[in-house]
Amino acid sequence: MTSQQQVQSLLKLDTKASKRSTLLLEQPVTRQRRDKVGLSSFAFLFAEMIRYSQNRVLGIQDLEAKLNELGQRVGVRVLELTMSREKIVRRETRVLQMLVYINSVVWRALFDKQADSLERSTENEDEYMITDNEPAILKYISVPREMASFSPGAFVSGVVEAIASCCQCPARVTSHVVPAEGMPLRTVILLKFDKEVMEREKRLESGK
């Protein structure tokens, strides 16, 4: 049995129809039953996830890729869950509308606030930036000096990357710490959309 087959068999969800199984399919998710946990809980967990990942990779890029992967599983769930709570369930398939959704609804669902800005790059028309001046989840992560270019926000870029992919606007998403006056943790999530997405956007725009 290959590694992949082994994992598949471990994760196979061929569950029998039990009481709990049925209850889970019926449970209300419209309003958050449980509101908050301590930020420290997340911070400690996140720090430990970084440490765990660090031991399994060589180099910062691989570490960020691991965090990205962890974030992707969160992203697809956050998208479907937040959409189910919107007044009208819909899909976002256009770049700008999707970005606005991420900037507002997704950020609020995750961080209790909107992202601080959404901008299009002036140099590359296929690049957009979402900026968070004070990402709460990064507050207690201290990055050692020898890893200065490491951005723990790679987890968040994973969340965003999964959402973009679900919305048919695949992009390469990366996270960069860009400190500013009084905002040492200011993080920019950079989305670089695939060529096919930009071409489709042009087609759809001209079709109007």
Binding site: L13, D14, T15, S18, V76
Partner: peptide, 14 residues
């Protein structure tokens, strides 16, 4: 469900 991988078969009897 965290154990459900998106885009895999749904096998739950329930």
């Amino acid at each position: 469900n965290p154990f459900y991988e998106a885009n895999t078969s749904i096998l739950s009897q329930a």
